[in-house]
Design a protein around this nucleic acid. Structure first.
Lengths: 339, 339
DNA sequence: CTGTTAGCGCATTCAT
DNA sequence: ATGAATGCGCTAACAG
């Protein structure tokens, strides 16, 4: 009784007085056309009996699932947004997206999710900067299932079809330039090592920026992962350096914490302290003062990722596209950097 | 070549020198036991050939998918968190959870997602306060697939197994009580009608609260859905009423906007204005001043929902539970209501 | 156009 | 303990 036995095409065929093949045909379109009359009969029968196609049987039969698997480190904020956009794009392409979270870069959960998706025989896979290494991934995914990476840098060709990466490094680099232009006499990157590659890229960008645009300006790097005492940190920062000090925050959440601490300490923004976040979250827009931040082109990133897969599905020869696509962020300036 | 033909039990059987039935037995356990020797041979062969079970075939064969479908209005914030917890609980029970977002209470997308999940023959369904009505849902879901609602009030028995609801109404009611106790001379609920039932519950709770605890206090209700000008609203509010004024915000996001506007207008918190949010988000904790908010027992809610399904499946889990379970929120007080 | 038939990969009797 | 056979629901050639 676990499954009250649903209606199948056999019953629909009987009710409509045709063969199961005909039912299959009219219910899928695309294939062979049928006479108006049969179409009507079949659709009517299907409707009345409450027929619902069994995806497993269909998938098994044609070895094609029209399903795309998505593995993300989490589902909050950026990840959740991305998932929603990918889902829309996937649907527009006639596929559906199964979303899995690996609970914050946990390699084990990640592996398990991958396995589940592979066992489902998904047509394609989209993963966000995997926590498990190259080798691990290779051994799992080398089943012919196309894999597209989101924010995955320098992955071997034999594993991933390609990657669609956000220009975090460039954003951070430009942030340092902008802060210097705004008069900052000292720069600091407040990161979050727990976020792996994402943090790494920003760190790299910050370093590149300070080197190129702020070689004569003092700069440092701290990390919030191990419960950094933001207030103490801010005090020390402003004590040790000449104002204004510019901060490049890991994301808008970190930026908010810094902003709040500054407000509490009566530190003037942007006179004494300037802050730039990343993601252009709700909080960046609605905090006071507003936080300058880098906006993410979700829709574009999602489209690009899905397109990479579709292209592969179509067997079309390699397109002119690069394997690793860099998607630029857009700077949105608010009061945290301008008065 | 769309599918490079994966290894099947047939090949494993051949390699191991046994029948496919034996392979199936060994690889599923539980059923009949096999000799140590055959187990070894089969597992070795499976390992070497890189065998990976085909979920569709298995599911089709035993008409049981071990899959649970989840439909949420979105994937950000509360929804994303909930999804993650549900995923964990589902996994602990030996199921996996397929997450779908209906792009903010869109009935059409919702319907489509439901349809996809039903076609997959998921063993169970978890939905968050559906936007489509009773009838619509009934006609779709009446296929024998157990449905558990999250934040769905007063749904007919024949549609849903039951519901696991957060005590928003009670939280809002208590909020008014608390604000009055803290000395507020006027109360206001700032809602978000776009969120349907969720907002409705809060509104109800606020009304019940003002009626019971603040009958002598002026109160009003506004909505942020149509781009409310928060600053103008706050000014008018403080002009029209005697301070302190207490605000019950739809959630912490709305609370943040109000808080920021207040900061900008130099309105003193909590002396002139007090705010209570809902969700106890990151922002409630890290804004300045901190926002008093109601914490959500994600884990408990997720467990309860999954258990309801498991129980129906016939597995373990205790019964005797009520159909509609109310999960209470916990008040976390911060500076927005106390000095 | 429509019907017949042969799988898809696996689980499950029922013999052995 | 193991194997042969049957079917899950549907699609995809072919036949007619």
């Amino acid at each position: 009784m676990s499954k009250p036995k649903q209606v199948t095409i056999v019953e629909v065929a009987a009710a409509a007085g045709v063969s199961i093949a005909t039912v299959s045909n009219v219910l899928n379109r695309g294939g062979i056309r049928s006479s108006k009359e049969t179409i009507r009969k079949v659709e009517l029968a299907a409707e009345q009996l409450g027929y619902r196609r069994n995806t497993m049987a269909a998938g098994l039969s044609r070895s094609k699932t029209y399903e795309i698997g998505l593995i993300l480190p989490g589902l909050t904020n950026y990840y959740g947004q991305l998932a929603e956009h990918l889902q829309i794009e996937a649907h527009n392409a006639g596929y559906h997206l199964s979303v899995f979270s690996s609970g914050g870069f946990d390699p084990d959960i990640e592996r398990r999710n991958l396995e589940v998706l592979l066992q489902r025989r998904v047509d394609g896979l989209i993963c966000h900067g995997l926590a498990m290494g190259f080798e691990s991934t290779r051994s799992i995914v080398n089943s012919g299932t196309p894999l597209v990476l989101i924010n995955g840098w320098n992955w071997p060709e034999d594993i991933a079809l390609g990657a669609v990466n956000l220009g975090f490094a460039e954003a951070c680099k430009q942030s340092t330039k902008l802060l210097v232009e705004r008069g900052c006499r000292a720069l600091c990157y407040v990161g979050s090592k727990g976020s792996k590659v994402i943090d790494e890229q920003r760190r790299m960008g910050f370093n590149a920026g300070t080197q190129q645009y702020a070689s004569d300006v003092i700069h440092e790097i701290v990390d919030t992962t191990k419960d950094l005492d933001i207030e103490a940190f801010l005090k020390s920062l402003l004590q040790r350096h000449v104002a204004p000090v510019g901060i490049v925050a890991f994301d808008d959440h970190v930026a908010l914490r810094i902003l709040s601490a500054a407000n509490k300490l009566r530190i003037e923004i942007p006179n004494q302290l300037q802050i730039i976040g990343i993601n252009n979250d709700y909080i960046a827009k609605h905090s006071y003062p507003g936080i300058s931040s880098w906006d993410i082109p979700y829709s574009y990133q999602a489209q690009t990722a899905i397109n990479k897969l579709l292209h592969k599905f179509g067997n079309k020869a390699e397109s002119g596209e690069e394997r690793e696509i860099e998607v630029p962020l857009t700077f949105i300036e608010r009061e945290s950097t301008k008065s």
